[in-house]
Design a protein around this nucleic acid. Structure first.
Length: 736
DNA sequence: TTCGACTCCTAT
DNA sequence: TCAGATAGGAGTCGAA
């Protein structure tokens, strides 16, 4: 530290590990490490002052005077969307590199190992060295320092405030500088004033979508920066607001936001003709009388962004400059978008104004409603609005080609832009074909940027893009949609889904596919039963208090078999425990199929009138994975059976041990594989066959297999299979 | 069985 | 001390 005197200290996780651990450890032995790290040794250290709860939750809560401390996993959490933010997963996703992750206990035991002290000690040190260097590589790959510097420059705030402070701080930094030049001061309402402000009354328009499958092209149009445009176009600002169109009280005041406005008598009447009146009954001065601070700020931000984007096209091969400019235009976009939030920040706002926020929202809403009317009344387009949310419009163009849809979409955009004041602009963003509207904020489609471009599967709000399902569900839903959109054939989808069900029942999948991961906020839960991820974390804490989740850390868990009727929270487990149980615990196939997979696909497929639940129930080899006996026989041979029933004849099993060699039955491939047809193969994959005497089918069915009439009646087995596939959906069911 | 509270996460 | 907003869907669980 003394040699290099760094400005920034970096750790992958600096609270429980890295410098947080060192600081606590040194405090425990009475060594003043914090003063050694500090550039100002007499400055009071974090550990001596009060614990910084807010800082611990948001960043690390560790402050060293004169240096910035970066908590890399938390920065990753802000920057990129991942299912898990542990060291291994971040390396895999950011660096594209597989690295091992050893728990501290293991490293400790290696380091202390007496048998081969040098080699193992060396391994531990090399591992830690690599972890440190990977942490630096992660920061570099995300370009975090460079981008943060650029944002600091754009907003005019310091480096660490970009990472640690909220958006109000950014808005105020810019707003205050501009307000000063116009001789305005910003209002600082008290907490009481803020809390007694009436709630906002206006809400954005979210249409109820016409849930269906659309084979015709659907144009997606949206207003570019709707709220900033509204503020500029209608000159909405604290400084231009004339208040509601109501008579003032006896003192000549009208209520406005957290405070009230003294309106000079006759003022409203004098500008009545020119004043801008918003749909919620607020009056604003026109820009030629006085341009508001907010509109001017936003106008300059949007203009600057256009200029930066223009510059980006001219930089040519200079990658570094291009990235810098890209960070700058992104920062400008961010600040424009959160300025509306600043006016309506009711919970923690420093200068909220509900009336101003309402005026912006309601004007935006009426703009969208007017656009919808324009589309519906434009007979020449033959278009229909099927969905809209806040600033976007989904317009179906029935029976037209994609090329025509692009043309019509651009015409609509131009027509709507023309009927609104500058700088409001409706843009054609993309065209979907085909697409499905599922619910509000939930839809999916093949998206085209231009008539000739390659389509991209674009999903919003459904499980495929949500992190509260597991990889299995995300993968299967995406694949199912692709099969549906590409082959247009329900029968193909059915056979794909049957394969998936079989794989789950036969436990052919990697455990990673079953892992849910959710954020845990210990100490915020009101209800008596903790949510699953918090339950898993709580059991970890019992074993090692330092292993507990950091605030908002994502904790992985899997669902295993248990007693019938058990609550979900009683069936969840750390994935490592499942691996360590050496087969004593099993993935709850029933749960994953009927509670996770089927409902999410049902919501999509019910739009076709397809009953996917029946596909599962009618699987001929449907294994009645009963967990009924599992608990009572835990550790006994019975826990290795998914069902105590013969999978074919449904008889209750009478023997559980291989009749020939009396060894444990295991999952194995059947020697019947070489016989013809997939029926046998699929049956065999589900069978539990004795590995000691491979080839024996005795244990296959759980009943006395040689005597099982059904298994050896291949004709009957074939019939069972065919019965389930008899429903022919036809190739032409979906036509477009 | 229904419904509401709680929790999580996404769209805008 | 610090903390943009609301709308909305889905899963889970316990009380009605």
């Amino acid at each position: 530290m003394r040699d290099t005197d760094p400005d920034i200290l970096v750790g992958f996780e600096v609270q429980h590990a890295s410098c947080g651990y060192l600081l606590e450890r040194s405090a425990a032995i009475g060594f003043p490490l914090d003063r050694c790290l500090s550039r100002c040794p007499f400055h009071r250290s974090t550990l001596e002052s009060r614990p910084d709860t807010y800082g611990q939750q948001q960043q690390s809560g560790i402050h060293v005077c004169g240096r910035e401390i970066l908590n890399v996993w938390r920065l990753c959490r802000q920057e990129i969307k991942l299912g898990l933010y542990n060291y291994t997963n971040v390396c895999a996703k950011v660096l594209n590199k597989r690295v091992p992750s050893f728990p501290p206990q293991l490293l400790h035991s290696w380091f202390q190992h007496l048998a081969s002290p040098h080699s193992l000690k060396r391994q531990v040190l090399l591992y830690l060295l690599e972890k440190a260097s990977n942490t630096l590589l992660i920061l570099e790959a995300m370009e975090l320092v460079g981008r943060t510097c650029e944002l600091a420059r754009v907003f005019g705030i310091d480096f660490f405030s970009v990472l640690s402070r909220g958006s109000q701080y950014r808005v105020e930094s810019m707003l205050y500088r501009l307000a000063r030049t116009q001789n305005f001061l910003l209002l600082s309402p008290s907490v009481q004033q803020r809390q007694s402000q009436p709630a906002t009354e206006c809400i954005p328009l979210v249409m109820e979508p016409q849930s269906a499958f659309y084979s015709s092209p659907v144009c997606v149009l949206d207003f570019r920066s709707l709220y900033p445009s509204v503020v500029i176009a209608y000159n909405m600002c604290y400084s231009t607001c004339l208040g509601k169109l109501v008579e003032p009280d006896s003192d000549g005041n009208v209520k406005l936001g957290v405070s009230s406005l003294r309106r000079a008598p006759g003022l409203l009447a004098s500008v009545r003709e020119e004043a801008i009146i918003t749909p919620n009954g607020m009056a604003f001065l026109p820009p030629d009388k006085r341009e508001g601070v907010l509109p001017r700020l936003l106008r300059e931000i949007l203009q600057a962004r256009v200029a930066v984007k223009k510059l980006m096209k001219q930089v040519g091969g200079d990658v570094k400059l291009y990235r810098t400019l890209n960070s700058r235009q992104f920062g400008l976009k961010l600040i424009a978008n959160v300025t509306y939030g600043y006016t309506s920040a009711g919970f923690s706002g420093r200068m909220p104004c509900a009336d101003l926020a309402d005026a912006i929202v309601q004007t935006g809403r009426e703009t969208l409603e007017r656009a919808i009317r324009t589309v519906e009344e434009g007979r020449q387009w033959g278009a229909r609005v099927i969905y809209g949310d806040t600033d976007s419009l989904f317009v179906e163009i029935p029976g037209r080609s994609r090329e025509e849809a692009f043309r019509i979409g651009r015409e609509i955009a131009a027509a709507v832009t023309a009927e609104n004041p500058a700088p409001m602009e409706l843009e054609l963003e993309k065209v979907y074909q085909p697409s499905m509207m599922v619910a509000k904020k939930r839809y999916v489609g093949y998206s085209y940027d231009s008539p000739s471009s390659k389509p991209v599967l674009d999903a919003k709000g459904i499980e495929m893009v949500r992190r509260d399902s597991c990889p299995l569900v995300m993968r299967v839903q995406e694949k199912a949609l692709k099969v549906l959109f590409e082959t247009k054939n329900i029968s193909k989808l059915k056979s794909y889904m049957e394969g998936v069900f079989m794989d789950i029942i036969a436990s052919n999948l990697n455990i990673n596919e079953y892992v849910f991961a959710k954020e845990v906020r210990q100490g915020t839960y009101a209800s008596s039963t903790l949510p699953p991820a918090a339950t898993v974390n709580a059991t970890k804490v019992l074993r090692d208090p330092r292993a507990g989740a950091l605030h908002a850390e994502r904790i992985p868990y899997v669902v295993v078999c248990g007693q019938p009727g058990a609550r979900l929270v009683d069936l969840v487990l750390d994935p490592r425990e499942l691996l360590a149980s050496s087969g004593m615990l099993r993935i709850n196939a029933q749960y994953y199929i009927t509670k996770a997979l089927i409902p999410c696909l049902e919501r999509l497929l019910s739009l076709f009138g397809v009953d996917i639940r029946r596909w599962y129930l009618e699987l001929p080899r449907y294994s009645r994975a009963s967990s009924r006996d599992h608990a009572s026989h835990e550790g006994s041979i019975r826990s290795h059976f998914q069902s105590m029933h013969c999978i074919l004849c449904d008889q209750l099993s009478r023997t559980a041990v291989c009749a020939e060699c009396t060894s444990l039955p295991q999952v194995a491939l059947c020697t019947m594989q070489n016989r013809r047809g997939r029926v046998e193969r699929d049956l065999a994959r589900l069978c539990r066959i004795c590995v000691s005497c491979v080839g024996s089918m005795r244990l296959v069915t759980g009943c006395d297999a040689v005597d099982c009439p059904v298994l050896y009646d291949r004709v009957k087995a074939q019939q069972l299979w065919e019965a389930s596939s008899r429903i022919d959906w036809g190739v032409n069911f979906l036509e477009w």
